[in-house]
Design a protein around this nucleic acid. Structure first.
Length: 592
RNA sequence: GUCCCCAUCGUCUAGUUGGCCCAGGACUCCGGAUUUUCAUUCCGGCAACAGGGGUUCAAAUCCCCUUGGGGACGCCA
């Protein structure tokens, strides 16, 4: 293969994402192994959400990992500009050209009409998609509406019959019936192109030979192929990699995983270890080696060794790998440097200092006062939160609402955080004092901290989000859905239960005091003790019920029955009789 | 709902032209050894070809169906 050119197109709408890094790594691997070039193209066609700061962050994140590109907005190159917002005229001209050629048309449908259309289609269980309302408008009407300056989009005119076949380097030919593909918007009413137009036009102009991207794009590839045909261009080779997954196997998301590269940096991961780990997802060395450098990866890379199953992004192995590097590849000085630069980062400490200076008397107290600034998770003790008249669900609902807002916050400033918090409290019937305490507890693990919103602002988006999500989980009463119950966790629960059952069986009778009675305190009066006992009993009961439910959902009960050579009913009975610890997702209802 | 993709231990994977695979490695977990403790390291163990049909002398590997998981269906990318 000659003159291989591949590209990555991150969208500057958020923190640098591990998925972006992963795709970049594979693109770079392909480019290097063919003596080709990697282009970095910023896909900032979403005016609402794109921010120049994110563009910088993304490039910084990729560079931190040691990933580099041959052409891009920062390094230049012969096919610029490399920022799609600066290529708007090119995209617009191409869209207009398709309109002139009768391959695309102006669509005056409003957002409201499209929403209503979708709703109806959903209600009638019809195929979703644009109905072609403006596809054959009378030219005179179009002119009239244009002179009236009605906003419009440009849509491509998909063929209504026939098939479109896409050739995927990894999956072979994939055939789509054109009737299932609707008329995609190419140019938005703000004059910016959509991904589909920009990506096809730019890939062609930048002479991209291979489009290596994630699986989520497969279903829009026929649109891209048709666009290439409309322009009379040769499409590139398509390579659809699998999608990285959360533990519950859904597409990886910031809601369920720490996905920000910078988060790993701040937590003291080694870029080499992170890259090594990414190279282990969906790919393997021909000789089975699991520890390798970026250069070794790039030299050995081949698409033929890509696995098509969506790998779960699991931190355990990454952590082990990082430790391996600490122990075997780094010197004391290396690790010392890493810790001082990434964990005790001077700039970060400088931001923390004004928050704690007046609260400490001696330098060493800094450690005690600020530990939560330096770890991923904090200890969340439900018992210290004294919530009056608020149940677990109330907490979850308000935290969920607040987290949604905060995640979308452009400006992660104390003021913005506070405004959002006041709004959330008011909307959900909380006093600010009560809600702010929950936030403080969730983000710092403490009931006392420096000014809350300044603290959160310094902690940063990734850490705050992570902790808010975790706090919500702590208030979860039993598995709400299968998605909320990771498989590994289920398996662990099952094993614990089986072991416990074995113990119970040998001991003859169920253990009597294995409950998790909250420590009532040695000198508590009888009434409080009785109350605590009842509460513990209820908690344990709920835990057992949930456990049986969890076990039923798996094949564990029949398996256990077979193994212990007893009837299924007996297994269930034994589980029922056994006093288990309330497990993680059944934190007892907070008091009140 | 429609279309598409995927399917080996809990997780990452080897297995790429069917036989050397009653399936190998790594993480996790459990045992043991070394270590004043802990961690490390070493040794051992648990654990998978989703199910059902075919094709074949022979299938984890090829085909079909079922099931399961995922994605797309946005004036987001």
């Amino acid at each position: 293969m000659e003159n291989v050119r591949v590209r990555i197109g991150p969208s500057p709408t958020g923190e640098p994402h591990v998925g972006t890094a992963w795709i970049t790594l594979f693109n770079l691997g392909f480019a290097r192994s063919h003596g080709g070039k990697l282009v970095l193209r910023i896909e900032d066609t979403d005016q609402e959400r794109s921010r120049p700061e994110w563009e910088q962050e993304i490039m910084a994140g990729l560079r931190w990992l040691g990933l580099s590109w041959d052409e891009g907005p920062d390094v230049g190159g012969p096919h610029g500009p490399y920022r799609q917002s600066e290529r708007r005229e090119i995209h617009r001209a191409h869209a207009e050209q398709l309109v002139r050629d009768g391959q695309a048309y102006r669509c005056f449908c409003t957002k409201e009409r499209l929403d209503a259309l979708r709703e109806t289609q959903r209600a009638n269980k019809d195929r979703l998609g644009y109905d072609g309302h403006c596809r054959d408008l009378d030219p005179a009407e179009i002119d009239a509406r244009l002179t009236r300056q009605e906003p419009f989009t440009i849509r491509m005119k998909m063929p209504k019959t026939g098939d479109t076949v896409i050739h995927d380097r990894l999956r072979g030919d994939v055939t789509f019936s054109n009737e299932n593909v609707d008329d995609q918007v190419l140019l938005k009413s703000d004059g910016f192109p959509t991904y589909h137009l920009a990506n096809v036009v730019d890939d062609h102009l930048m002479e991209i030979t291979h489009v290596i991207r994630a699986e989520e794009w497969i279903s829009s590839t026929p649109k891209h192929v048709i666009l290439y045909q409309m322009f009379g261009w040769t499409p590139p080779v398509f390579v659809h990699l699998p999608l990285l997954r959360n533990k519950d196997t859904s597409k990886i998301s910031k809601r369920k995983n720490p996905v920000s590269i910078m988060d790993y940096k701040q937590r003291g991961f080694l870029p080499e270890a992170v890259v090594n780990f990414l190279g282990l997802l969906g790919w393997s060395m021909p000789d089975g080696r699991e520890i390798f450098t970026l250069d070794e990866f790039l030299a050995a890379f081949s698409l033929d060794r890509v696995s098509l199953t969506g790998p779960i992004f699991d931190l355990e192995k990454l952590t082990w790998l990082n430790g391996k590097y600490f122990r075997e590849r780094l010197t004391n000085d290396d690790v010392a440097r890493l810790v001082t630069e990434q964990v005790f980062n001077p700039a970060y400490i400088k931001k923390i200092m004004p928050l704690v200076r007046e609260r400490i008397d001696v330098g060493e107290q800094f450690i005690e006062a600020t530990d939560y600034f330096f770890k991923g998770d904090v200890d969340l003790d439900l018992n210290v939160l004294n919530l009056k008249n608020k149940g677990a669900k109330d907490v979850r609902v308000v935290l969920e609402a607040y987290t949604e807002t905060v995640e979308a916050l452009v400006d992660f400033s104390p003021d913005a955080l506070e405004t959002a918090a006041r709004a959330a409290a008011e909307n959900h019937g909380w006093t600010t004092g009560e809600f702010f305490m929950v936030l403080r507890w969730a983000t710092t693990g403490r009931l006392a901290s420096p000014p809350l919103f300044e603290t959160m602002s310094v902690l940063g988006r990734a850490l705050v989000r992570r902790r808010l999500r975790r706090a919500m989980a702590a208030f979860k009463q039993g598995p709400d859905s299968r998605r909320d119950r990771p498989r590994a966790e289920t398996k662990a629960t099952v094993e614990t239960a089986l072991k416990a059952m074995a113990t119970t069986a040998t001991a003859g009778a169920p253990a009597k005091n294995a409950t998790t009675a909250p420590d009532a305190g040695a000198d508590a009066d009888a009434e409080a003790e009785a109350e605590a006992k009842v509460k513990a009993k209820l908690a344990a009961k709920a835990a057992r019920r949930a456990l049986v439910e969890a076990l039923r959902a798996t094949r564990a009960i029949p398996e256990a029955a077979a193994r212990l050579e007893i009837p299924v009913e007996e297994v269930e009975q034994r589980i029922h009789d056994f006093r288990v610890r309330p497990i993680e997702w059944q934190a007892p209802e907070p008091r009140g």
